[in-house]
Design a protein around this nucleic acid. Sequence first.
DNA 1: CTTTTCTATTAGACTAGTCTAAACCAGGTA
DNA 2: TACCTGGTTTAGACTAGTCTAATAGAAAAG
Lengths: 233, 233
Amino acid sequence: MLSDVMEDYLKAIYSLQAERGPPVSTSAIAEQMEKTPPTVTSMIGKLADRGFLEREKYKGVELTDEGEAVALEVLRHHRLLEAYLTEQLDYSWAEVHDEADALEHHISEEFERRVAEALGNPDVDPHGDPIPSVDLDPVDRAETSLLDDHEVGDRVVVSRVSDRDPAELDYLDDAGVVPGTELVVVDVAPFGMVTVRVGDDEQSLPESVARTIRVRPVAAEGDPGTAEEVNGA
Amino acid sequence: MLSDVMEDYLKAIYSLQAERGPPVSTSAIAEQMEKTPPTVTSMIGKLADRGFLEREKYKGVELTDEGEAVALEVLRHHRLLEAYLTEQLDYSWAEVHDEADALEHHISEEFERRVAEALGNPDVDPHGDPIPSVDLDPVDRAETSLLDDHEVGDRVVVSRVSDRDPAELDYLDDAGVVPGTELVVVDVAPFGMVTVRVGDDEQSLPESVARTIRVRPVAAEGDPGTAEEVNGA
DNA sequence: CTTTTCTATTAGACTAGTCTAAACCAGGTA
DNA sequence: TACCTGGTTTAGACTAGTCTAATAGAAAAG
């Protein structure tokens, strides 16, 4: 009933809304989706007509509960697939995103169920992103903050990394920066370059990378999820 | 470069060509694809322009080597997926077809490779259909014939069953008619109803079903593929 | 309060894939 | 040979999704 394309828009709007809050602008969606603004205007009109979002012209959009449910369903598919590909088919951390993007719209509820079961119903994917529950409760990012927003001396644990750019993921993987890794911010240079200590090594991360890493305070005793082994001392 | 839709047409044409030989008519494709004849005319025009088939107006089409390669690639995906879903995710024999149809166009070469490896590079799927090789050599149905074409007294081994109709598959599964099953034709009634003995049981199969089952002579010592256990005495 | 600038929307066109209705072969029948 | 019948193709329309170019609204600057 809902095309792949529409699902992609709802997913994009969901993540923009989660990051920067509603309303979400036409141009923000256009950038995220790599489409032109008129294309987005036309699509949000259709999505609003079908009740997936509220729209105020020239202002932006906000997902309705129904729109959010669709986005969460797609997100659940995406993250379950990432987890499955990593754990059962030996995909590397960096490879899974594109494959999951291609498959997320085409798996049945049955497939979703069986994959979740095979994984023991995990609640985070390999990047540290929370997997929406079967009943699609909104996921929250609770205690986390962006690494980019921290100051020298802060000691934090990596909660999640973006799953978008394979090259970046490979780089972080090599650097030992994965969900669960503990790090200390040792320098913040002009233009946002952030240097962190990971175990005994220091790693300098461009701002564009630091902005995609979410962290939580190091003290937390909370469940680190399915985090890989923690590096360093 | 090639849309899902085009891949589906090439797959359909491939299987029609394999069953009834070239040329394949517009109406046969239309029926298989559940599309109208004008739609098919328009699509085969595009496929011919792009070199995937030879077309003679008012006569029909025949796949080029390139078209056949595409069809075999899709078929390989389909059958690997069926095998994977059955073996690794506990799908029943009957459930896999639709899931594989949905996924076959969206898996990467990497996914194909990993799935094949996880299964030990099988050469038949759970229905008994041959899985095209990685290098896409044409598959042949060698020694097989349709159950429908046999006479009372013939003793044969099931080589493959159709993967199209889940209800039919469930029925055959219950009846113990799976690839590898040995059966004897005990009656052929008017209108094509075929009665076979499977072990100690007799099963009557409507012609529509008997026509989807391929069998080979019982004597053959050939490799029975990944056949399930053989039922009966 | 007016002007400039930036973003959003409208207008209109294009491709892919589909349909219905009408015209058109081609082969068999008279 | 002429006709009829049935499958095939053409004609034309429609939806989904996309674009570029032009217009319009909102917000910021003067």
